[in-house]
Design a protein around this nucleic acid. Sequence first.
DNA 1: GTATTTGCAAACACTTTGCAAGCAT
DNA 2: ATGCTTGCAAAGTGTTTGCAAATAC
Lengths: 124, 124
Amino acid sequence: MKNTKFTQELRGIFAASAKPLTVADILGILRLKKLRPNKTTIYRQLEKMTRAKDLEHVHFESRGLGYEKAREHHHHLICNSCEKIEDLVIKDEQKMFDRLLGRKEFKAQEHHLEIFGLCMACSR
Amino acid sequence: MKNTKFTQELRGIFAASAKPLTVADILGILRLKKLRPNKTTIYRQLEKMTRAKDLEHVHFESRGLGYEKAREHHHHLICNSCEKIEDLVIKDEQKMFDRLLGRKEFKAQEHHLEIFGLCMACSR
DNA sequence: GTATTTGCAAACACTTTGCAAGCAT
DNA sequence: ATGCTTGCAAAGTGTTTGCAAATAC
């Protein structure tokens, strides 16, 4: 991946962001920085970074496709009120899924799990 | 909800289908039946049936928004090979989610879980 | 110098809206 | 007769593609 003004910006944005970002999010951030980003470039660069395993897809039904820095397998807790997103790492996840499938004859490969609710601050 | 040729068709289709259907699926089915459906009508009627609790939204990242007959809370096992979709009802689901959240301060309200893999037939 | 990256315009796919006409009740 | 439903055309949104110009290496 070449090192351009643009890719530097993108790396910076993902380094600074705790939560998954959509193309629209990134457009917004860049515009706040007074940059005039081209959305085609964003689409292309995000996909390229995903192929390179720097990013991973995160799908949220409400916000569409997002991207986040690749890291340990985890899930998301999404606050319905303030939209904050926390990570959730499940202990013994494999075991849990095995149990959950019971005697179903299904060879699980991947899964998606997101939990919506109220974060600590919003549930007061 | 009025009883028109169209709404009868729709009801019939959902009565006959075990799996969630997208607008595109329904367009296809109707065309196979030599009908010339209007997609605007499909969009509108599906949303209406959803508001009436006859249908429920099902979001699949790969296929976009789908709809299925409203019924007991469940999840989906999606075959990566043949696309078959099975239902999965989790026993003691509430308990499982409580445990899974551990001591996290998060008040869960809803969740989405889909498991992808190979169905019995395809895992041979 | 070469290959990758970028910007732009246009194409595309999907969904929604406004309005007039049709139909169920 | 009335109001819900339908069809059509158009607009809106989000994403992708082709190509020429710019730029990193």
